[in-house]
Design a protein around this nucleic acid. Sequence first.
DNA 1: ATAAGTACCTTGTATTATAAGATAGCGTAT
DNA 2: ATACGCTATCTTATAATACAAGGTACTTAT
Lengths: 105, 105
Amino acid sequence: MNIQFKKGVLELCVLSLLDRKDFYGYELVEKISKFVNISEGTIYPLLRRFRSEGYVTTYLEESQEGPPRKYYSITNQGKEAYEKLKLEWESFIDGVNNILRGELI
Amino acid sequence: MNIQFKKGVLELCVLSLLDRKDFYGYELVEKISKFVNISEGTIYPLLRRFRSEGYVTTYLEESQEGPPRKYYSITNQGKEAYEKLKLEWESFIDGVNNILRGELI
DNA sequence: ATAAGTACCTTGTATTATAAGATAGCGTAT
DNA sequence: ATACGCTATCTTATAATACAAGGTACTTAT
């Protein structure tokens, strides 16, 4: 296990949302920012990385409220990555909690 | 609340340990690495930052097993920062859990 | 002597979150 | 029409920092 998890949190959140339905980037920023503040400059590069890693596919759809939306759809590979990351996140939290509760002194 | 928390995890762990007793840097790496892998190149700059921020004071003590140890002792200011960070961490975890449980769709 | 373990510190690299801004479509009010 | 505000995407520049790797130096055991 690895402190790299800090990086994984946002990835985990995005994969978790995409595991339930398709979202477009701007929408992801809005949803996630309700709980954990993030900016567009963070999510777009991440989504591009997800696509290049085969975790998501994309398609465009017209919008009546502005420019076309690029929707992201999770792949089987993305689902696998999601399940793995979720387990790692849970064990990371356990590790941190152990430290915070003083189990290791 | 803020995704900056990823960065805060290590700080939180270190403050949590120092809140119970004094540690020297190398010892902190050993303890924390049992649960969350970190390296010395990470902890020493952090400890120096803590000292410059007034969160800790330091003192040297001889060792029978090697070079002198630099012990870190938490200050009242450090304790306050710790309590604050702990609350923020807990609410961050809640935020992430909300997202993972799909409370926001 | 030499090696291994302890303990501190610094440097260089790579990653990445963020702010800020560019681009552009759409609807509404002036 | 045109100016504004919102939606939506993307890029760039900056700052932070985790890590690997290496350097220094002490002690103990071989």
